[in-house]
Every structure is written in C-alpha cells, then in structure tokens.
C-alpha cells in the first residue's frame, strides 16, 4: 500500500510534467496542424537553460525557470519564423522533416555547450513529507502544484484574453477566423512561444529529479504525441487528462510489470489508439 501511494505521487508529478509539455504540442498541432517533432528538443533546451541560470549565473530556482521560459519562448518564436513559416503551404512531410532537422540542431547545440555527459541539477527545494506512510518529496508536490497553477492561468488566458481567444478561434475554424481579421501569422508565433515556454517550465521542474542530457527530450517527444492522440488533438482538457493517465500508466507498469514495459507503454498507446480510431480518439468521425 505504501509502495502504491509512493508510485501514485510519482505518477502525479510525472503527469504534471507531461501535461505542461503536451499542452504546447497540442496547441501547435491543433492550431497550426504542425506535428512538431522538435518539441522534445525544446523541452531539453529548456532544462539546460534553466540549469545555466541556476548553476552558472546563480539566480534563484523560480527565477531561473522564469528566465529560461522567456529565452525559450523567444527561441520558439524564432523557430516558427525561420522554419515553419516559410513552409506554411508545404506538404506535411516537409514540416516533419524540417522539425527533425531542428531537433538534431538543438541536440548538437546542447552537446556543444554542455557536453554529452549527464548533469545533475540540485533543487533548492529539499526534504519530504510522509503521507500515509509514503515519503513524498517536496519537489514532487511543487511540480503538481505548479502544473495546476499554470493550467489555471492558461485556461484563464484562453478564455479571457484577446490573444488566447484568438488561439481558440483559430483552433476551431482556421479560415473563418482569418476572415474576421485575426492575423494567423501572429497567432502562429504566439502559439510557438507559449508552447516552448510551457515545455521549459515542465523541464525546469523535473530536472532536479531526473538527470540532464542532450537526448532527454527524445522519448518525451513521442510520449507527448501519445498524450495528445489519447486526449484529442488541440484539446486542452484532453492533454491534461491524457498527461496524467499516461504518467500513471507508465509509473504503475514499471513498478508492477517491468521497466521496459513502462518505457514502451506510450508507444503501445499510440499504436492501439490509432489502430482502432485512425484519426485519434476524439476526432470527429470521417464518413465514407
């Protein structure tokens, strides 16, 4: 029972990370129809930039994550302008290939700047509490708390602010919204910036638990794809539910089945969901 509680909290913390990372991807895919395979690489860079501000510059943890999020948001916008904007009318294969190029580049940058070795990032948040006999580290509680707060802010942003409403409008009807004078170009940049910033927050939060490496984003890329396919493309609530569901499934499978099974479950989810519903779980049915 103690083990279960322990794993439950681990799963919730991981779920928080997955949600934050998946929301960005689901926005980019839902709004812009770009399956951004470089999303995991942005997450990885976010972790390293946080590390840079925390360890090299020496600013406080929360400020380091904030600064890194700003840096990555700018990078996300830059990537949209340089890579995806020129390809906006190209076939989807071109988007994906370009994203792979960007992914390779980001990994090489991280390796050039920080080396290929694993790095550890100490968190100033230490200690743990005992809940029902299980030791839960404060870091994990902070992750879950932050995820909830950020999700709340995001919901508010999408529902209340002009830019947020624009994203939602475009997501629902691309052509319609360009008719009423919303610039798809600005929304596109905004979406990429927001997505990169959210991935950075996720990476900055999880970095003290996991180790940093230039390839840490590889598996995450596919896992977040599993989440948004599970939760429905472009759906924020779907990304949240899918994120927690996949994280819990992973943690429980690694604990009670095997580590390899836990690692593979995301890919099995993709294959199973798409085998049964080729357009994703919550997509509108396509009639023949």
């Amino acid at each position: 029972m103690t083990l279960f509680i322990q794993q439950l909290f681990d799963g919730l913390a991981l779920g928080g990370v997955y949600c934050l990372a998946a929301i960005g991807l689901t926005l980019i895919f839902g709004v812009l129809r770009i399956p951004n395979l470089a999303h995991g690489a942005l997450y990885m860079l976010g972790a390293y930039v946080t590390y840079f501000f925390l360890v090299t510059v020496g600013v406080p943890y929360v400020a380091a994550i904030g600064l890194a999020a700003v840096v990555l948001a700018l990078l996300g916008v830059l990537m949209e302008r340089l890579v995806f904007h020129p390809l906006r009318n190209a076939p989807h294969t071109h988007h994906m290939i370009a994203a792979v190029g960007a992914m390779f580049f980001f990994q090489a940058v991280a390796q050039a700047l920080w080396g290929a070795d694993f790095r550890r990032m100490e968190s100033p948040i230490s200690g743990s509490v005992t809940i029902l006999g299980a030791q839960i580290s404060w870091q994990r509680i902070v992750i879950v708390g932050t995820a909830v707060v950020v999700l709340g802010l995001l919901t508010w942003f999408v529902k209340r602010s002009i830019h947020g409403q624009t994203i939602e409008a475009i997501e629902q009807d691309r052509t319609g919204s360009s008719l009423v004078g919303i610039s798809p170009s600005r929304v596109s940049m905004l979406t990429f910036g927001l997505a990169a910033a959210l991935a950075t927050v996720a990476a900055g939060l999880v970095a003290p638990i996991n180790l940093l490496s230039p390839t840490m984003g590889d598996a995450l890329s596919l896992k977040v794809f599993a989440i948004i396919i599970l939760g429905g493309l472009g759906s924020l609530p779907g990304a949240v539910v899918g994120g927690f569901a996949l994280a819990l499934a992973e943690v429980m499978t690694s604990t009670y089945v095997s580590a390899a099974a836990g690692e593979g479950i995301a890919f099995v989810v993709i294959v199973l969901v798409l085998a049964i519903r080729p357009t994703g779980l919550f997509a509108r049915a396509v009639q023949r």
Binding site: H92, T93, F225, F267, V268, T279
Partner: peptide, 21 residues
C-alpha cells in the same frame, strides 16, 4: 495505412520505437 498523413508518420514512428525497444 488506416491512418493518414501526420497520423501515419506518428504511428510508424511509434512502431519504429517499439521495434527498437
């Protein structure tokens, strides 16, 4: 091949990962 376009790419990528794993 029941999936299309981006979904096909994602599906095959997952398949590739499973083979690798």
């Amino acid at each position: 091949l029941r999936t299309h376009e981006e979904y096909f790419a994602i599906f095959t990528m997952a398949m590739g990962f499973i083979i690798f794993l």
